[in-house]
Simulated assay, not measured.
Amino acid sequence: MDLSIETKCMYGDREGLKGEPTGSISFPIYQTATYAHPEVGKSTGFDYSRLQNPTRQHLERVVASLENGIDALAFSSGMAAITALMEIFKPGDHLITDIDLYGGSIRLFDNINEKNGISFSHINCSKEDVESYIKPNTKAIYIETPTNPMMNVVDIEKMAEIAKAYKLLLIVDNTFLSPYFQNPLDFGADIVIHSGTKFLGGHNDTLAGFVITNSTEISDKMRFIIKTVGSGLSPFDSWLILRGIKTLAVRMEKSQENAIAIVDYLRNEPKVKNVYYPGIKDSPGYEISKRQSRGFGSMITFEVESPELARHILKYTKLIPFAESLGGVETLLTYPFTQTHADVPEEIRKANGITESVLRMSVGIEAKEDLVNDLKEAISSYKG
């Protein structure tokens, strides 16, 4: 029988604890670097933990199940996952990427991958004619949806149609919605990326990254790369992410409920100029979100009336920390201008609307009344 996503968070592909001889309900941490062989030519299936580890393998099976992929690979961070993925391309290749991406991704593309001979066209994939940027050496389209931090929604199915027509790969960073709310492979993507540090882990206590695919060829390439570059996730961190995923469903639902309440408040606050959230009915991406996602998530970006007010809010919220991350049980406020997107070229920041008055909010699972009141008090205390 087909399992619901809530149940998959607990058991993955129904393998559950099959093959774990003790019957431990919490999958064990196999804290070992190497494995003994019965004799020459025979193996337990594990040789060396850089190649594979039972705890990491179990996590990868769960994540592959959640994203409806045939394979998932767990890396030491989200950026380690993207860095390894870029090794499937070679000097002379060209990629089309959305202009509004996590700043770390842009930093990698512009400073490391371009140095190594890969070129990029950064465009607005939700508005511009993507096909007009395709070149003979174009190999992939790389998007986030919703985008970080401006919450633009990109039509995955449309991008997949373009990619397949030109024999390109479609890569989708699905961090903001998690597999609980969105499954890009179901809409034609070839590869899904996650910063597992965020919603999958859910507790701001470890780093992780994932590459998921439904292609045997890509899986084989990525297995060779992770073995070679050595950036696989450690056993203990794999266990932490497994533990986090068990509560993914309830966390995502509660965080979304809180986010909707905060959006309602912010849209009626005179000192807030703009609120960016895909669940706003008159937002440009609302209908696309309804079609390709099961929810709108808990990430909000909003613009206040001045940079001074933005910095005041960051200083004077009493409950909500000013911190650079997202997806945990704690609500966090981030300042993209100096944090997540500080290394993005100024012209791109301006084009995307990332000003000194913009704040990004990752909404957690606290009481929504407390979160709204904390924002209210911080904003009302500003006398500028």
Score class of each variant (00 low, 15 high):
R56V: 09
Q57M: 12
H58C: 07
L59K: 07
E60D: 06
E60A: 06
R61W: 07
R61N: 15
V62C: 07
A64L: 09
S65G: 11
S65I: 03
S65Y: 03
S65N: 07
L66Q: 08
E67S: 08
G69N: 01
D71C: 05
D71K: 15
A74R: 02
S76T: 13
S76P: 06
S76W: 08
G78M: 04
A81V: 09
A81C: 11
T83N: 15
A84W: 02
A84D: 13
L85N: 01
M86I: 03
M86V: 03
E87Y: 10
F89P: 03
K90P: 04
K90V: 13
K90E: 14
P91Y: 06
P91H: 04
G92E: 08
G92P: 05
G92Y: 06
I96E: 00
D98N: 14
I99L: 11
D100V: 11
D100A: 12
Y102H: 13
G103E: 08
G103H: 12
G103Q: 10
G104V: 04
G104R: 04
L108R: 15
F109E: 07
E114W: 05
E114M: 14
E114Q: 13
K115Y: 10
K115C: 09
N116F: 07
N116S: 10
S119D: 13
F120V: 05
F120D: 01
F120C: 06
H122P: 07
I123G: 06
N124H: 12
N124E: 08
N124L: 10
C125P: 00
K127L: 12
E128C: 02
E131H: 05
E131T: 13
S132G: 10
S132R: 14
Y133L: 06
Y133S: 12
I134L: 09
K135E: 14
K135R: 12
P136S: 14
T138A: 05
T138I: 06
K139M: 11
I141C: 07
T145C: 07
T147M: 13
M150P: 04
M151D: 10
N152K: 14
V153P: 00
V153A: 01
V154K: 00
I156E: 02
E157M: 06
K158Y: 11
I162P: 00
A163D: 00
A163Q: 00
